[in-house]
């Protein structure tokens, strides 16, 4: 044993390093709290979009029109903008965006081969020429009311 002193010294050094590592690790890191904290971080985000009830609070009239029309399944915020850009609590903070563009309508109603055949869709040029109307950027809402689009 007397000639293995150097080796035991190396082993001792190694054990000290491992002990320091374990000690420092338990002192500094608490991984068991990480996942709950991370979950809380994601949950604490404030929603940008509200929901229907948020809109109904002030706009019950329009909400009723919408609920009775063809667009009953379309959430208000889809065509307008997220609720949080418009209201904070019951207080209006900015005017709601009104996108009157035909492009918005065409996103859903432009005829595409990949769309379900029974979904109401038109080739815009044909639809307009059949009715003798010239194309304008906001042409759709001249005849169709967005909240209840059936003529």
């Amino acid at each position: 044993m007397e000639h293995q002193k150097h080796f035991f010294r190396a082993i001792f050094l190694l054990i000290v390093i491992i002990m320091v590592y374990i000690f420092a690790r338990s002192l500094i890191f608490h991984p068991e709290t990480w996942v709950p904290e991370a979950k809380e971080m994601i949950r604490s985000h404030t929603p940008v979009f509200g929901n229907l009830h948020g809109c109904n609070g002030c706009h019950s009239e329009v909400a009723r029109t919408r609920a009775e029309g063809e667009h009953k399944g379309v959430s208000c915020e889809v065509c307008h903008a997220p609720l949080s850009t418009h209201a904070e609590g019951k207080k209006k903070i900015a005017p709601m965006v009104k996108n009157r563009s035909a492009k918005l309508c065409m996103r859903c109603h432009q005829q595409l081969r990949a769309r379900p055949a029974n979904f109401s869709q038109v080739v815009v040029a044909n639809h307009l020429s059949e009715n003798g109307i010239a194309f304008e950027p906001e042409v759709c809402i001249d005849c169709h009311m967005p909240h209840s689009p059936k003529l």
Partner: peptide, 10 residues
């Protein structure tokens, strides 16, 4: 490591 043991046994 401070050990100067270079004997044949070591």
């Amino acid at each position: 490591l401070g050990v100067y043991d270079d004997s044949p046994e070591a």
